[in-house]
Each structure stands twice: as C-alpha cells, then as structure tokens.
Design a protein around this nucleic acid. Structure first.
Length: 434
RNA sequence: GCGGUCGUAGCUCAACUGGCAGAGCACCAGUUUGUGGCACUGGUGGUUGCGGGUUCAAAUCCCGUCGAUCGCCCCA
C-alpha cells in the first residue's frame, strides 16, 4: 500500500496565521459596525435540513440543484452544509418566535459556507461570508441602511471607488406579469439567443438579463424593463430607496438587468463592486467580468414560505475571500506581525524552572514575551530573539538566579544592565515606553 | 457539468535529446561550553502528487486519476 498523502479537499483551504490576520481585521470592523447599528450576533448550525434550502433558496437554483453538500444521518435525515446564511437565520427567527421581540429584529453573523463547485479565482468550496439580516421592517430605509452598512465596512477596509448596483425585481403582484411579458418578447427571438438563455426562457426568463453573451446583450437591450412594469407599491418602494441612497451620499448605479439568482428576492436587489474587484480583462483591455463583493436584497415572502407569518425582511452578505484578495492585491493593509517585545533566555535547570513564573508576570502586565525553553545555548536563544524582533532580551542564568537578579539586554544596541528580579516587570515597562 | 495550463524538498525553482534527483531560501546543530544580526562548516528533509503503460533505463514519453490554477456556467 502506497503511503497516502493527506491534503485539504478540493476548493478548501487551511487558513494559516498569516492570512488569519486579514479575517480578523474584517471581523473586527464588522463587529464594530454591527454594534453601532444595533445588530445582534447570531450563530446558526453549519448543517441544516436540506429541505430548508430547497424551499427557500429555490429548488431550481444552481446553488441547491448542483452545489449543495448533502449527507444522510444514521436516522435517515437529509442534511446539507449551508450554502448561504439567509435561510438558516430566517429559520431561527421563526423557530424562536422572534416576531414576539420588538421589531425589527436585526441579526448579523459570519462564518464558513459550502458550495460544491469548480474552484477558481474568488470562488471556493468552503468560503466565508459576513451577513446582515433585518426582519420585520418593510421600509426601504432599512434596505438603504443595509447598503450603507456594507459600504461602510468596505470603506473602513480602505476600499475606494465602490459601485453600488441596484434594481427592483418586483413582488408577487407585478413580477409574474413582467415574466410573462419578457417571455413573450423573447419567444419569437429564441433562435438568436444562446443555448443557456433558451433554457432560461422557460425556467426563469429573468435570469436571461444577466447573460454575458453578446448576441443576448443585443436582444436584452430592447427588452421590456422591469422597472417600467412595477406595481404601485414596488414602484414607490424603489423610488423611496433611491431617495434614501441619494440623501446618504451612497454612489449607486441603476442596473435594470440586475436580477440575482436566488428565488426569494422581492423588490430591492443590489450588489457592490470595487473598481479593483478581481476582474477578467480580454485582449482589447475591456473588462469582461467582475465578481461582486456584496450581494443582497429584500425577501418579503421567505418567512411565510418557511411557515412563519408574513414578515418583511431584507439582508445582504459579503464574500470575505474576495475582499481579502483585493486587500492583498493592493496592499491595503500592511499587516503587522505579532512581534514579542521581550525575549526570555535561560541558562540551565534552575533558571528554566523560574521561567514560567516570570512569563506569567509579564502576561499580567500585558507585555508580550517569547521564549525558547527547549533550547539551552545562549547563542541560539539570542539568535531566536533577534529573528523574532524582540526589543529586549532577559537573560537568566545560574548566577543571576542566585543573586535574585536578571540581565536585561537591549537588542538594538547590545547594552546590558543587571536588574533586581522584583523590579523586572516595572523596569521593562519603563523601557518599553520610550 | 465542460474546457485551457500546471504538479520535483516546507518555499522559489534547476536537472540538455529519456541516462546517478540538485541549488538557493527556510529549518536544526556547531565554529572551544554565558551573548544575536555577518560569515563559515555540517545536518534533517524526496518512492519527482498517485496508479498503470512504453523502455536496458522515466521527473522527462503515453494513458488514467487526484490536486492546483484560469475560464465557461453560476455566484459572494
């Protein structure tokens, strides 16, 4: 039997501490902003009943149809690794009777999501999103607030030139009518459409609108636009949303072709791009494709579908890896390595035994100390201290222990001084201040 | 699900037309036993992703497979 080399499954990655710093930076900003806007943290299971996603995300969407990791429990239940956050959080809202809490209920979360798909730039089988959801509020103000939140998160992460694409895709009143209208427009032109769009025409004609094929582009340019066919309430909602965005100085762009792939959206849909979004450029230097950093919208029907009451809801999610890719690419954040300020070098058994206690004293004083208790040679330990970038090295040898003292060496200059053991932490505090 | 490119040490990469699997970095130890950065010496580390085929001989050629990467589809 050949030796098996284990590695991460396709499209999944270990996050090593170097990269983890980026995740932490993102989450730190997200936590701050969430707190400010009154969002409470929720954490739902990574596994949910597979039917939850079929019902909410939509049984005919790619995500559910082809991209879900599903498994059967010993008891025979069909579970799925969550491919997105919204259904799980909506489920939690219904399950815990959150409609009895003061409305709206504002929740946010972040964590891993799973989609079985072919990995490529900005797309993985295990990836992370930051997600904000608001339940029980139908005002477009909350749609605008969510957009503002994600805009603020990206701004805090030093993104510039952000583009917010918005659209309204109507609701159960007006969308069926528009779908029919669009299908009627497309049917006589079916022969000029790409194969995918011919299929979409039957299943979900709306999806044809974000096709990138050139021949479809031409046809859709003449197609009826949903904005012209919204019912009165959707029209008013959309108009009001745009006013909110204007007032908030959020630089949006109206994209009548933005539809999004999930079944549950109603009215508002939006995506946020950066001009630096990982983009694909063809030979002419034209931007052919960009991938969204943030996507979201309103989903006023979802809660009812999940067996709750008719509760308005709105939310959005941002792809952490995509954000990180740009941060790294442009060097937005000069990530500081966590350098220890002090290194503790010890020589011999007795000093080694004193070391743990000294380390603990420094921890309480909140001064970072590194050590190399497994090594004995002073030369090696100083080498390590140097490599780690410590400002001072404390040298504790037999002689010092007997005299109840330590040697403090300033690494930059090599100056050394003997300090009494009981003054050690205070002395270093003083020196590190300078 | 479909297509392009690529898999050699922890990392970056060599190895001609098929002919002994190497270097730099990193890591570990040492340069006379308690003093770092520089330098020097030595060492660990590989069934060349895996499996099969062709051949006297395969990292190299062929087939398959797994993985990475990029694109289509779709999406964050």
């Amino acid at each position: 039997m050949a030796k098996i080399k284990y590695q991460t499954p396709s499209g999944m990655h270990d996050i090593l501490s170097e990269d983890y710093a980026y995740y932490e930076k993102v989450y730190e900003i997200v936590n701050d902003i969430a707190r400010f806007y009154g969002f409470g943290r929720i954490q739902t299971p990574v596994l949910e009943d597979a039917a939850l996603f079929e019902k909410s995300t939509g049984a005919t969407t790619d995500i559910v149809e082809k991209q879900m990791f599903t498994l059967k429990t010993k008891g025979g239940d069909e579970l799925a690794l969550r491919p997105e956050f919204t259904p799980g959080i909506a489920r939690a809202y219904v399950q815990h009777g959150m409609l009895n809490m003061p409305q709206p209920v504002k929740l946010y979360t972040y964590g891993p999501l799973f989609r079985y798909e072919h990995p490529q730039a900005g797309r993985f089988r295990q990836f992370h999103q930051v997600d904000f959801e608001v339940f029980g509020e139908e005002s477009p103000a909350i749609d605008a607030e969510i957009i503002q939140i994600f805009y603020a998160i990206l701004k805090e992460l030093k993104f510039s030139h952000l583009i917010i694409e918005v659209n309204s895709i109507g609701d159960s009143q007006c969308r069926p009518y528009y779908k029919k209208l669009l299908a009627n427009y497309l049917r006589p032109r079916a022969n000029s459409l790409c194969a995918d769009c011919r299929r979409r025409m039957r299943q979900n004609p709306l999806r044809m609108l974000d096709c990138k094929e050139e021949k479809c582009q031409r046809i859709k340019a003449q197609a009826p636009q949903i904005i012209d066919h919204l019912c009165d309430s959707c029209k008013a909602h959309f108009k009001s949303l745009l006013e909110f965005l204007d007032e908030a100085d959020l630089p949006y762009h109206l994209d009548p072709y933005l539809v999004r792939g999930l079944d549950y959206y109603t009215k508002t849909v939006f995506e946020i791009f950066s001009d630096r979004t990982v983009q694909v450029v063809d030979e002419q230097g034209e931007i052919v494709q960009r991938s969204a950093l943030v996507g979201g919208g309103r989903y006023d029907n979802l809660l009812k579908i999940l067996g709750g009451k008719e509760i308005a809801a709105s939310g959005a999610a941002a792809g952490v890896e995509r954000i990180m890719a740009i941060m790294k690419d442009r060097g937005t954040l000069a990530m500081e390595e966590a350098k220890p300020r002090v290194f503790l070098a010890q020589l011999g058994d007795l000093p080694k035994k004193k070391s743990l206690k000294i380390l603990e004293e420094f921890r309480r004083a909140k001064i970072s100390v590194a050590e190399s208790l497994g090594r004995d040679s002073l030369r090696t330990q100083l080498g390590r201290a140097d490599k780690l970038g410590a400002e001072y090295t404390i040298i504790l040898g037999q002689k010092e222990v007997l005299e109840n003292a330590v040697v403090v060496r300033k690494m930059e200059t090599g100056e050394q001084e003997t300090v009494k053991m009981e003054n050690l932490v205070d002395e270093l505090k003083k020196r590190l201040k300078r």
